[in-house]
Nucleic acid binder design. Structure first.
Ligand SMILES: [Zn+2]
Ligand SMILES: [Zn+2]
Ligand SMILES: [Zn+2]
Ligand SMILES: [Zn+2]
Lengths: 133, 133
DNA sequence: AACGCTGTGTAATAATATAACATTAATAAG
DNA sequence: CTTATTAATGTTATATTATTACACAGCGTT
């Protein structure tokens, strides 16, 4: 089913759902996705959630936790699926993935008081985007 | 209703719900809270959510977004309700609020590529706690 | 009294996510 | 090729999380 040797071969449902997220200018919610793919034969929430889970796992998309929504990764298909940072406009809800070498380095090396290092993090910044100021 | 001049005077429902979260060693979910306060006359989800919203707003508790759960603030009733960081153990689900001057300073001053500064952030680190390693 | 504001009580419903089970497709061994 | 194993799918039902809508009570201000 489409054997181009990309990083990952997406299955049929995964590809459909990735495409719709990837084309969207804004994060999409699971049920919004569901409504948009019903014409393509995906009829049940679980089909969507399974694809979403997999896409998150392989770093093609990220979940914006504070919004229960999903966005395609734009860090050249995130080598850092486990180290994500976003800016979120509190008015227009625009979400942008932040890619800052300094930030990711700082957080990847951050140790808490017990000297604990972390394998993974998610950071969400909130504020007003250019337009909304 | 209890006029000690603290930072905020909690209402009856707010106090009940804060107490239960504050006593809990682990983050509590809204419906767990609901089940635990029904004996005290709080019967409906909305009563819980309204109190939670207010408590979050005034910084007495924080929401752990990736878990849909709530934890009491232990940074001396968070002056930084809008700048939160947590460590989360992926095995036992233990959650700890991180208070690191360095971290909060770094993030408070972080500017993205457009020079945008943010008024608020939430950071969740994932890894394994001492016990679970 | 009339108003604004915050909080409360209640019922209904919306939105988000998972469990359980049966089946099929793709990969890997033997 | 055949069998085993894993990943993905399809379907129904259900669990979990959160909000809408409406009525009303308490309190301080004007
Ligand atoms: Zn990414
Ligand atoms: Zn905006
Ligand atoms: Zn705090
Ligand atoms: Zn642990």
């Amino acid at each position: 089913m489409n054997k181009m040797h990309k990083e990952h071969n997406l299955s049929k449902n995964q590809q459909i759902i990735f495409d719709i997220i990837n084309k969207s200018p804004e994060p999409l919610k699971a049920y919004t996705i569901l409504f948009n793919v019903q014409k393509k034969g995906i009829k049940a929430p679980l089909q969507v959630y399974r694809a979403l889970d997999k896409l998150v796992e392989i770093g093609k998309i990220h979940k914006i936790e504070s919004r229960n929504a999903f966005i395609a990764c734009h860090n050249s298909s995130c080598q850092v699926a486990k180290a994500t940072a976003f800016s979120i406009c509190e008015i227009c809800e625009k979400v942008t993935e932040i890619s800052s070498a300094g930030l990711s380095k700082y957080l990847a090396n951050f140790k808490d008081k017990d000297g604990m290092k972390y394998s993974k993090y998610n950071l969400e910044f909130f504020g007003l985007c250019k337009k909304c100021r």
